[in-house]
Nucleic acid binder design. Structure first.
Lengths: 198, 198
DNA sequence: GCTCTGACTGACTAGTCAGTCAGCTAGGTA
DNA sequence: TACCTAGCTGACTGACTAGTCAGTCAGAGC
């Protein structure tokens, strides 16, 4: 935190979570970080640069937080469940991370520079899920008849879709969590009596 | 189309599909519609009004188009499949409709006035899916053990999630369509030999 | 003490954009 | 004919914003 540049990036993330990526103003970020707006241009060439680096900063931080949240769970199935439930939780930090991610996602539709970044972290998210499912199969908790790639992509899609509904407030956290656990059970053909959460 | 107001709304939708909701400029809309920017203020009080009415206009139009696309399909299961596949298709018109919907969705996160509108059309979309699943059960193509509400919400979420991936170009149309058909089969417990598309 | 440098600021500029306003025009009415 | 009104426009304005720039200041090195 001693680092000014990092402080500015964190302030930027807070502003994006509050106002949206397009609603981000250099003046607002400067006020949030307690510095002059000229300093922002000292560390970042343009507003677009600041935005992009803030997105990447948030992405790395969210990855680390997710990693940390699942490491000490013994089974792969348990880690998968926890991973997919993280962003459905009521924890404000994860809500902001998720909102940042959605903003990055949709900004990338109109900005090719961002699109590359999004594709990369999107792929790593999917790989992480797929890796856990493969581990779970090795541990014997996932039937061999499951098509792992299909299951992975559909699970990722369900979580994304429900996450969006959470942001707009059309669904509750508990309901989303139930539906995600059910989706994992369905996709991986897990018997009802083995579906308890880790 | 004779109606100027409608012409302006359609122009607005085209601009949103091209530049995003936040990227919408009154001047751009005016040029797109071939009128003066002052005329926009003659029909719509503010930019926010224009945006909101354009979203609602697009929503109604998309509903009608979807309705029209499924009416002449004989079975409820077939209508459900077609309905959920529409926005995964490569058809540019539906891509724009879908993009508009995503823009409306994410704008509503930061704008309470829009949120109400989004909740309403979101609910009607979910109800439409649920209605078709209930019809399919009456027609005997869906097992009685399926929890219809869970299946509905998860199917809606999968379609939303895959739709987002389509917009950002992280998945192909064909792949998305396959995954959606698979999700319908899984959620409704449809035997593999009865899964052919309508 | 002197000089140099990196971090930082206040004041400014050039440009953009939503919204306003006075007024034009064609078609209808008295 | 004179008058009215709906539809429409060009020119304008005030608010806002990204980015620039000259200059301040504390501390490191000599």
């Amino acid at each position: 935190m001693a680092d000014r540049k990092t402080e500015i990036l964190e302030a930027t993330c807070r502003v994006i979570a509050r106002e949206g990526a397009d609603g981000l103003r250099m003046g607002t970020v400067a006020r949030e970080a307690g510095v002059s707006s000229a300093l922002l241009h000292y560390y970042f060439d343009t507003r677009a640069d600041l935005l992009m680096q803030a997105f990447e900063h948030a992405d790395v931080k969210a990855d680390e937080a997710a990693e940390q949240a699942i490491t000490d769970i013994p089974t792969a199935l348990g880690r998968l469940q926890r991973l997919l439930l993280i962003y459905a939780g009521a924890d404000a930090v994860f809500r902001d991370d998720w909102l940042l991610w959605v903003e990055m996602w949709r900004s990338s539709i109109f900005d090719e520079r961002l699109a590359e970044s999004v594709r990369r972290s999107s792929a790593s998210w999917v790989e992480q899920i797929q890796g856990l499912i493969e581990q779970a199969r090795e541990e014997g908790s996932v039937s061999a008849e499951v098509n792992i790639e299909d299951a992975t992509q559909r699970l990722a899609a369900v979580v994304d879709g429900l996450g969006l509904q959470l942001l707009t407030g059309t669904i509750t956290h508990d309901r989303a969590a139930d539906l995600i656990l059910g989706a994992i059970g369905n996709e991986l053909r897990i018997p009802l009596d083995a579906r308890s959460t880790a």
